[in-house]
Design a protein around this nucleic acid. Sequence first.
DNA 1: AAAACACCCTGCCTGC
DNA 2: TGCAGGCAGGGTGTTT
Length: 273
Amino acid sequence: MPELPEVETVVRSLRPHVVGQKVRAVYLSGLPLRMARKLDEKELRRTCVGATISAVRRRGKYILIDFDSGRGVLVHLGMTGRLTAVDDRLERAKHTHVVWTLPRKRELRFVDPRRFGWVQAAAKIDELPEVVGLGPDPLTELDEETLAALLDRSRAPIKSFLLDQRRLAGLGNIYVSEALFRARIHPGTEARRARKRTGVLVDAIRETLELAIVNCGTSFRDFVDGVGESGRNAMALLVYGREGEPCKSCGGPIRRTVDAGRSTFFCSRCQRR
DNA sequence: AAAACACCCTGCCTGC
DNA sequence: TGCAGGCAGGGTGTTT
């Protein structure tokens, strides 16, 4: 489900409810998550129980929870993950995999029906391979020069290029379609051939993500923020999910193609090969 | 080395 | 009303 704007929305809405709070206990469902891997229960308890949350950060699509001990917890929402701070009297949803018990009858809960998400505690979460391998953050670390150098080195279609988290961290299937439409670049264009449009692409990516953050993310079905609220960005989407509907720029029909099992939406008039 | 593919899961929607 | 099939915004490991 969640891409950079959704993860940013979760982080922002979660902060006031969890930062400064001391974790009393941790519950785990025991079921395996991403890639059928089991969570490291001992490490999670060692890190969290009795420790106070000092910060909640985002890196790409990962949520990083820091504790006063210096240790931390990495959370990835996968496709259907939710991380919410709620009253403990609220019934636990089906597929609740991790619960952190907080003071004043509150709980931080990780719920993930498809179990594509991930939760991991470590002494230094910034040094976990998942985090170290991430490319620059499109909102804070991306400049034209960096992207131009990356584009030069790749013959992959620009769509799969932008989806690769090692190059840029945070774009997913929705916002790639949106950003490419804004930049008027056809999704099948070879990355290196989009080089001349680097500046336009950087701006398009930023505008796309910033608008989605202002709207608190795109909620089709699953996505909610840190307190259970849906986002409003679905109505602001220009191409994603709009197959057959008129292009907001030229009026022509929005087209959809499928590659590697993933939909791509674009306007064949506005986005020429 | 880079790109394409299968796979990890459940839920929801469509069509019969 | 039931059931099969297809589809979904994630990442990873393996093959080509």
